[in-house]
């Protein structure tokens, strides 16, 4: 038990600045404390350090200017995508018939829907990664863990309060007030099942929003090591990616451009002169793929050079 507490204390001390971490670990070793006392001391210091950050105006600017809006947008996107995924899953799993395997039409629709869903899931993951990257990029390294926690808490709050559902309700009211075409409701037989109504959206949010966002925050903090020109490019594409998220999700200014509340094509409803710009934004969303591939190749080259040396 003592060893476990010491190990936890060491892990927790990673949240401190490097010099302070060194001094604290040395003090604990010198004082011959028990593991539980050491853990209590380190926990107390970490809490005090991050509580002090909460009183900094920059934390609140990040929370109100970036974290809340972005997590709300991602949550809406995640809910929309979970709805689409739920319908397809319900169609295939809850209404399965082995006779379908003999139908060519089934295989055609399956491949089309799998391709469409995979593309949308990838888009959501890239958006989440870009959002995390931007958050990491705009956070000082010591603020990044706190901003990550605030991001997750906001995501959780938005999911629990049902903000995306309220925005959908709001969009329906706006459409009704302005006599616009009615937004179709979600599929009731699907949402009647708790797995598709609650668990599936949470899984989508966890694996396609939370996990990529954490990764993005981690990479965003490290971007200072890049060359200045590359930092500017990365900065520009990550902001562009979030602009794409902003204009694609309903519930905001662009709500009235869509009839159904679901974005079939990103440039639907925009003036033709803007189509090339919007189409470019559509491709910029996938910039994390280029980033991941480049980093992987860079790591492989570094490892090869190390082996040769």
């Amino acid at each position: 038990m003592d060893r476990i507490c010491w190990r936890l204390a060491n892990v927790l001390s990673e949240a401190l600045a490097p010099t302070e971490r060194d001094a604290v670990r040395g003090d604990l070793m010198e004082s011959h404390e028990s593991g539980s006392e050491a853990l209590r001391d380190v926990l107390g210091l970490v809490i005090r350090r991050y509580a002090a950050l909460l009183s900094d105006w920059r934390t609140w600017v990040a929370l109100l200017g970036l974290i809340i809006p972005v997590s709300m947008l991602l949550s809406i996107a995640s809910q929309n995508l979970a709805g689409i995924g739920s319908v397809y899953s319900w169609l295939y799993f809850n209404n399965w018939d082995w006779g379908l395997l003999r139908s060519r039409g089934f295989w055609y629709v399956l491949s089309e829907s799998a391709r469409e869903l995979a593309g949308r899931y990838l888009t959501l993951a890239c958006w989440s990664w870009s959002a995390g990257f931007l958050l990491g990029r705009t956070s000082a390294p010591r603020r990044a863990p706190l901003n990550s926690v605030l991001f997750f808490l906001t995501l959780l709050f938005v999911v629990l309060v049902g903000a995306p559902r309220y925005l959908t309700f709001f969009s329906q009211e706006v459409h009704r007030a302005l006599a616009l075409p009615r937004i179709s409701n979600s599929n009731d037989p699907v949402s009647a099942l708790m797995f598709y109504r609650v668990i599936f959206p949470l899984l989508v949010q966890a694996f396609l929003v939370a996990v990529p966002a954490v990764w993005g925050i981690y990479e965003g903090v490290r971007v200072e090591k890049f060359r200045p020109a590359l930092r500017k490019v990365v900065w520009a594409v990550s902001i562009s990616s979030l602009i794409a998220l902003l204009i694609q999700q309903p519930g905001l200014v662009f709500l009235l451009l869509w009839e159904s509340g679901m974005p079939p094509q990103m440039w639907h409803g925009w003036p033709p002169a803007l189509h090339p710009v919007v189409q470019l934004l559509h491709w910029i969303v996938y910039w994390p793929l280029a980033y991941w591939v480049t980093r992987a190749l860079g790591h492989r080259r570094t490892r090869a050079e190390t082996v040769l040396a």
């Binding site: 010099t19 302070e20 060194d22 001094a23 670990r25 040395g26 003090d27 070793m29 010198e30």
Partner: peptide, 15 residues
């Protein structure tokens, strides 16, 4: 400031 490390501190510096 950060001072020298000592063996009894596991080679860690002190404040």
């Amino acid at each position: 400031w950060m001072g020298a490390s000592t063996p009894e501190r596991g080679g860690r510096s002190k404040r």
